[in-house]
Simulated assay, not measured.
Amino acid sequence: MKLRKVTAASATVFALALTATACGSDDGGDSGDGGGKKITVGIKYDQPGIGLKEPDGSFSGFDVDVATYVAKELGYAEKDIEFKETPSADRENALQRGDVDFIAASYSINDERKAKVDFAGPYLLAHQDLLVRADEKGISEGTDLNGKKLCSVTGSTSAQNIKNEIAPKAQLRENGTYSECLDGLASGAVDALTTDDSILAGYAAQDQYKGKFKLAGLKLSNENYGIGVKKGDTEMVDKINKALEKMESDGSWEKAVEANFGPANYKNEPAPKIGDIVK
Rank of each mutant, 00 (worst) to 15 (best):
L3C: 01
L3M: 08
R4T: 09
V6Q: 10
T7I: 12
V13I: 15
A17P: 10
T21V: 15
C23K: 14
C23I: 15
G29T: 07
D33Y: 15
G36S: 11
I39V: 15
V41T: 10
V41W: 03
G42D: 03
K44A: 13
Y45N: 12
E54P: 07
P55D: 11
G57W: 10
S58G: 14
S60W: 05
G61L: 08
V66W: 02
V66G: 02
A67K: 05
T68S: 12
V70M: 02
K72C: 05
L74S: 10
A77S: 15
E78C: 03
I81Q: 09
F83N: 07
E85H: 12
A89C: 00
R91G: 02
E92C: 05
E92Q: 11
G98Q: 04
G98I: 11
I103L: 07
S106R: 06
Y107Q: 11
S108K: 11
S108T: 14
I109Y: 10
I109G: 12
R113I: 00
R113L: 09
A115E: 15
V117T: 13
D118R: 03
D118W: 01
A120R: 10
G121N: 08
L125Q: 12
A126G: 11
H127W: 11
H127Y: 13
Q128E: 15
R133V: 06
E136T: 05
E136Y: 03
G138W: 06
G142E: 08
G142K: 10
D144Q: 12
D144W: 11
L145M: 14
G147K: 12
K148W: 10
K148H: 09
S152Y: 01
S152F: 02
V153G: 02
T154M: 04
T154A: 07
G155I: 03
S156D: 11
A159Q: 05
A159G: 14
I162N: 03
I162Q: 03
K163M: 06
K163T: 09
N164E: 13
K169W: 01
A170S: 13
A170V: 08
Q171C: 00
L172W: 05
R173L: 10
E174R: 02
N175C: 06
G176I: 11
G176N: 12
E180T: 15
L182C: 02
L185V: 04
A186S: 11
S187V: 12
G188S: 09
G188F: 11
A189M: 07
A189H: 06
V190M: 09
V190W: 02
A192Q: 07
L193Q: 02
D197V: 00
A201T: 00
A205E: 06
Q206T: 12
Q208F: 03
Y209Q: 01
G211F: 07
V229W: 00
G232S: 08
T234E: 14
K239H: 08
K239R: 14
N241R: 06
K242M: 09
L244I: 06
M247P: 01
S249N: 07
D250T: 03
G251K: 07
S252P: 01
A256C: 07
A256H: 08
N260A: 07
N260M: 06
F261G: 05
Y266D: 06
P270S: 04
V278T: 14
